[in-house]
């Protein structure tokens, strides 16, 4: 398999959020700013990467019938690790992301990578796949966060570039849906070309 292609597929062609419509809950729930989106993306990337590595290593040890419970336990462990480490060392971000950190465990995209890719491929491919897909997810969340922050609070990564309030609706729930809708339309257009 072409590893370069394997790595870049997560950005646009098979982007988990824009194309596959997976992991939408954190994608909408945590992207009130570019920074929050990036934090959530990186946390998820860590879980995808680590669970891909472990699943790929033990794929032959685990019998077929119990593979899903095993994968879930592995993913849940890494999620808990992220949760604990963030609470200890990045308390402000941890509070912002809140409920969505434990919910990484039910992010269909994470289990999807373990089941569809890591359980069938070599360690190296799984590492590259996990990193690429994780970065693609981070990219999507940061982009969505940035779009909402620019429109909603006239700022990017906390830096205000126009005085005063932006279009508040983009920070609120409805704006999340609408912003993502237009970004998906954009990604579709890019994919067609």
């Amino acid at each position: 398999m072409d590893q370069a292609k394997n790595f870049t597929k997560g950005f646009i062609r098979e982007n988990p959020v824009f194309i596959l419509m997976l992991g939408l809950c954190p994608a909408l729930g945590t992207t009130t700013s570019a920074f929050n989106g990036m934090g959530m993306g990186l946390a998820t990337m860590f879980v995808v990467l680590m669970s891909n590595i472990v699943v790929s290593l033990i794929k032959n040890f685990v019998p077929n019938k119990v593979r899903i419970p095993c994968y879930i336990v592995i993913i849940a462990s890494f999620v808990t690790i992220v949760d604990l480490v963030m609470a200890g060392f990045m308390p402000a971000l941890h509070e912002q992301l809140g409920l969505f950190i434990p919910l990484i465990v039910v992010n269909c995209f994470v289990l999807g990578r373990a089941e569809a890719f890591a359980s069938k491929n070599t360690l190296l491919s799984s590492v590259i796949d996990g990193t690429g897909m994780g970065l693609g997810f981070t990219f999507a969340l940061t982009l969505l966060g940035a779009a909402r922050e620019i429109l909603g609070s006239n700022a990017i990564f906390g830096l205000q570039f126009i005085e005063g309030d932006g279009m508040l609706v983009f920070i609120l729930a409805p704006g999340a849906f609408i912003a993502l809708g237009y970004l998906i339309a954009l990604a579709n257009k890019l994919n067609k070309q």
Partner: peptide, 16 residues
């Protein structure tokens, strides 16, 4: 360009 998921998301946004 809006066919499929994009228009559904915008509709959900209006519902929200």
């Amino acid at each position: 360009g809006m066919k499929g998921n994009p228009i559904i998301l915008v509709a959900a946004g209006l519902l929200a």
